[in-house]
Structure formats: structure tokens, C-alpha cells
Design a protein around this nucleic acid. Structure first.
Length: 392
DNA sequence: TCTGGGGTCCTAGGACCC
DNA sequence: TCTGGGGTCCTAGGACCC
């Protein structure tokens, strides 16, 4: 039996969600004017997180620097984000989708797949998809696109066709007509680099990619990628809709400085801050990490990174920070200005036992107490934010 | 114009073991 | 004394996604 998969994608999610909130407060609808969501517009390094359709029509794009967008459109309306509200909107739309099928995979905060193979039996999938999109719009106030296809890839490609508030199909029988004329960049997993490589060999459309000799493609992108791209370009994908939420495999945090830094004290302060954040997150989720990595970005955007294994899985801020500090001094010459510093942990376990070590740092008790206090303050801050949020 | 932040997966080379 | 080949782990770097 041919599968029926829906991909539901919120149109300009962060912008739509902020717009809904402002409309409820009696303010004008951001979706009707050139507007964007971004970080602090005063910071020269802020970039655009989401743009309205009128803004996109002016050439303003996601991930563009705000300063650049303002030059394009001086009257651009700029608003900040609201993670608490985003989360609420996301949960709202996911729970409506789940009513249509319990076989649901959340792909990101604003996208999900549902397997409708059984639920659509005897019904027109387009009618069902239209009902779903309309229900989200009328109950939650924002629009989505629904892509309908016989697998996840086709459904996702279809939801990316004309926006907003639309249902599109992409069945296997429609691949040649609807997908092959598109540029290779439109295919999932073909980014800037792969596009450049492919087009330099005259492979411009998804159709070119679908019909090219596989050995030729292997020489260009390697064996595994070649097989994958060839399958996708032909509209083939048998991956299931995964209902299990996968556990995190890594956590990281990074800080970009508003001005490039050379002062080791400033840089260490940033490293300290990201270490606190990352360590707090793994404690919150009951993980310990065996690998610590540290990375820096230079002014030319090149990145250097270093990682190491810790003797025992840890969730102690001081242990993580010490490794990161050591690696920073190994990798940074102490002179070159830095744009960014970051820290990550991976190889996570839920191991709970504490192996007694003769060489355990005698300050360990102090470190743990410090972390406990930190977590408590952080939890209080979260509560206060939630309360303030509920009062609105 | 001057580029955020948080993830996943892949590749390739070297070390080490059997 | 010198040899093949496979497997696993670690590290650094890169591509891609939202």
C-alpha cells in the first residue's frame, strides 16, 4: 500500500507567532507589513531570525544581518523573540496535528510529519490536509503549509511550494513534473557547497541529478552521498515517521562578542558563562559527559576546536570549565582577536554512580555545592519568568 | 553588508589491538 | 624479523538542518 505522509510547516513561524500575540493585544498585524524578528537591533552583529512575506518580497532573508536589512528597508518593523510564547504555539499546533494521526514525528519547533496512511483511507488526502490547516488557522490564528506525499521527503518538498496557507501534493507520479525542474539547491541536504560542486559539473536541476550516472556522481560527492542524493532526486525515501523522541547526543553553547576580543580575562569570562549554561543543562536532564570540546572563531570566521575525554563522566561545571580552559590555551595563541568562544559536551550517559578515586579533587564538595546553588537560582529565575508570563 | 545559536551526521587519518 | 587485514576509538574538520 502506498503510504500517505503529511509534512506540516508553520509559515514564517517566529514572526507569525509574535504577530498573533500582538494582534491579540490590539496591535497591528506584523504579517501584513515588512517586518522581522531578530536579536538586539542595537547590536551590529544581530541577524534576522524570521521575516514576514512582505519583507521577503523586498529581498530580506533569514540569517541576514539586521543592519543590512535596514538599508534595504528603513521602515522595517523589528521585534524581539519570546521563547515561552513560541513553545506554547508549537505545542498548540503539534497537539492539533496529533489529533489527525498519533504517528507523529516532531522535526523542529515548527515542523512535523504525520503518517496518514490509515487515517486517510477512503478519503481524499487533500481534503483532510485542508481541514487540518484550516483548523490550525482558526483555532490558533497562524497559518501552515501542508505537504502531502508518499514519503517524508516528498511531503517535505511539497510543503515548501507556494506559501502561505496552502496544501500541495507531491506523489511519486508527480516527481518528474513538479520536482525535476527545480534547482539542485532545493533538494533536501544539498547545501551551498554541494550545489557549487554539482553546478560546476553542469548538474543544475534535480532532474539532472536523478538521471546522471551514479559512478560519475560518486566521484563528485563520495559514495554514500551519491547514493543518497540519487535516491532523493528520484523521490525515493523509505524512512519511517519516528514517533520516539531521540535523546540528546550533545549539548553546546557559544557566545559571539559584540567586539572581537583579545583580553584573556574577557575571553575567560565568556568561557565561564557558557560552561555554566552547558553544565546546568546536562544536570537538568540527568546526564554526565565523557567528552568536552572547546571551540573558537577568529575574525575571518575560521574555526579551531579541540576536544578531550575526561577520566570519569562528569556534570560538574568546574571540571568541564577546567578542561575547556586548558584546551583554550593549547589552541589560542593569546594574541589573535577572537570573534566567538564556545563549549560543548558529548558522549553522554545517565550513569549515576560515583567512582571513588584516590586522586579526587579535594575541592569537589565545594564545586558540587556551587552547582547546586547555581541550579537553584536558575530554577527560581525560570519560575519567575513563567509567572510573569502567565500574568500577561 | 558583514554575517547567531543549537544541533546531527559524515569523513579521514592515526593509534592501538587482535 | 617482518608481514596483512580488520575493528574500534579518538580527534579535527566540514556539511547540512532549523
Amino acid at each position: 500500500m502506498e503510504r500517505i505522509i503529511f509534512h506540516i510547516d508553520v509559515n514564517s513561524a517566529f514572526l507569525s507567532w509574535i504577530a498573533v500575540k500582538m494582534v491579540r493585544e490590539g496591535k497591528p498585524d506584523l504579517r501584513l507589513v515588512p517586518s522581522v524578528v531578530s536579536g538586539d537591533p542595537e547590536d551590529r552583529r544581530s541577524i534576522i531570525t524570521a521575516a514576514s512575506i512582505p519583507a521577503k518580497k523586498l529581498g530580506i532573508k533569514t540569517a541576514q544581518p539586521v543592519s543590512m536589512a535596514l538599508r534595504t528597508c528603513p521602515s522595517l518593523v523589528i521585534v524581539g523573540g519570546d521563547w515561552g510564547w513560541y513553545k506554547e504555539c508549537s505545542e498548540g499546533f503539534i497537539s492539533i496535528c496529533r489529533k489527525y494521526s498519533p504517528v507523529l514525528q516532531q522535526f523542529s519547533i515548527d515542523e512535523c510529519f504525520i503518517d496518514m496512511s490509515f487515517r486517510c483511507y477512503g478519503q481524499d488526502p487533500v481534503e483532510v490536509a485542508t481541514r487540518l490547516k484550516d483548523e490550525i488557522r482558526t483555532t490558533l490564528g497562524f497559518t501552515v503549509n501542508v505537504g502531502v506525499g508518499s514519503n517524508k521527503l516528498l511531503a517535505k518538498m511539497a510543503s515548501d511550494f507556494e506559501k502561505p496557507d496552502k496544501v500541495h501534493t507531491l506523489w511519486e507520479s508527480e516527481v518528474q513534473e513538479k520536482m525535476w525542474p527545480l534547482g539542485v539547491r532545493d533538494l533536501l541536504w544539498v547545501g551551498k557547497k554541494t550545489e557549487a560542486r554539482l553546478t560546476s559539473y553542469g548538474i543544475r536541476t534535480i532532474g539532472d541529478l536523478a538521471t546522471i550516472d551514479i559512478t560519475m556522481l560518486t566521484r563528485l560527492v563520495g559514495r554514500n552521498a551519491a547514493i543518497q542524493l540519487h535516491e532523493y532526486a528520484n523521490g525515493r525515501d523509505d524512512s519511517p515517521v519516528e514517533t520516539e523522541v531521540a535523546e540528546a547526543k550533545s549539548y553546546s553553547a557559544e557566545r559571539t562578542f559584540s567586539k572581537d576580543l583579545t583580553d584573556p580575562v574577557d575571553i575567560d569570562r565568556a568561557l565561564f558563562n557558557v560552561a555554566c549554561i552547558v553544565a546546568h543543562r546536562i544536570r537538568r536532564d540527568h546526564f554526565r559527559a565523557s567528552t568536552v570540546s572547546m571551540f573558537i572563531k577568529y575574525t575571518d570566521f575560521s574555526v579551531a576546536q579541540k576536544q578531550c575525554q575526561v577520566p570519569q563522566p562528569t556534570d560538574v561545571t568546574a571540571m568541564i570549565l577546567n578542561e575547556a580552559r586548558r584546551m583554550l590555551h593549547e589552541v589560542w595563541d593569546g594574541v589573535s582577536p577572537l570573534r566567538q568562544v564556545g563549549l560543548g559536551v558529548s558522549k553522554l550517559t545517565h550513569e549515576n554512580y560515583e567512582q571513588m578515586s584516590l586522586f579526587e579533587d579535594p575541592r569537589m564538595e565545594y564545586y558540587r555545592e556551587w552547582d547546586r546553588q547555581y541550579d537553584e537560582k536558575r530554577a527560581l529565575a525560570e519560575d519567575a519568568r513563567m509567572l510573569a508570563y502567565e500574568r500577561k
